[in-house]
């Protein structure tokens, strides 16, 4: 059994958007749409401000509301790694999954179906890393199996402080940010 997750080191991420470009190229994401994106989160009280740069995408949640609400089963959890995927020819474009996602990670592809990050499952299945991870110039992104104690993602999560985005939404997200 595997459970894929992504760990992103916010101390190393410079927001260069290589991950965004790699995703668009690898997955032929249409112009004007993004499966992943960069967020700059500034918080604090001037002059004691703290900035965190995050590369964000679908969180491939353990409790994916997008899968639960899908009326046709187009949104589903892939048997490999618990990756949340959309079967295009089952999707009716009702947009319930877009409304159900607290991360707003989905969009409607110009061809009419709901689209999102797939963790580049087509690459992972042949032993490659997701495109965004493979191109990161600062090596701030890690991808691996949470169920494998020896994986990089597990080691990092065990040794560094980290957080997820909107854990309070209760979806058990699988993208973690090292702080």
């Amino acid at each position: 059994m595997s459970r894929y997750a992504m760990v992103i080191d916010t101390k190393k991420c410079v927001g260069c958007m290589d991950c965004v470009v790699a995703c668009k190229t690898e997955n032929n994401v249409p112009e004007g749409y993004n499966r992943d994106w960069i967020v700059q989160d500034v918080m604090g009280k001037f002059p004691d401000l703290h900035m965190e740069i995050r590369s964000e995408r679908c969180n491939h949640c353990d409790e994916p509301p997008c899968v639960h609400c899908c009326p046709t089963g187009a949104s589903h959890v892939h048997e490999r790694g618990g990756v949340v995927l959309v079967e295009h020819n089952k999707c009716i474009g009702c947009k319930a999954c877009l409304a159900s996602c607290p991360y707003d990670a989905r969009f409607i592809h110009p061809d009419g179906y709901a689209d999102k990050c797939t963790f580049c499952i087509h690459r992972v299945e042949v032993g490659l890393l997701p495109a965004c991870v493979s191109v990161c110039p600062t090596h701030c992104m890690y991808f691996g199996n949470l169920d494998d104690p020896a994986s990089d993602v597990n080691k990092l999560l065990n040794s560094r402080s980290h957080h997820a985005v909107l854990p309070e939404a209760g979806t058990k997200p699988h993208i973690f940010y090292l702080t």
């Binding site: 958007m17 965004v20 993004n34 994106w37 960069i38 967020v39 700059q40 989160d41 500034v42 918080m43 604090g44 009280k45 001037f46 401000l49 964000e56 707003d104």
Partner: peptide, 9 residues
Amino acid sequence: TTHEITTTR
């Protein structure tokens, strides 16, 4: 306290 978010999406 400031909390400002900028996204490229």
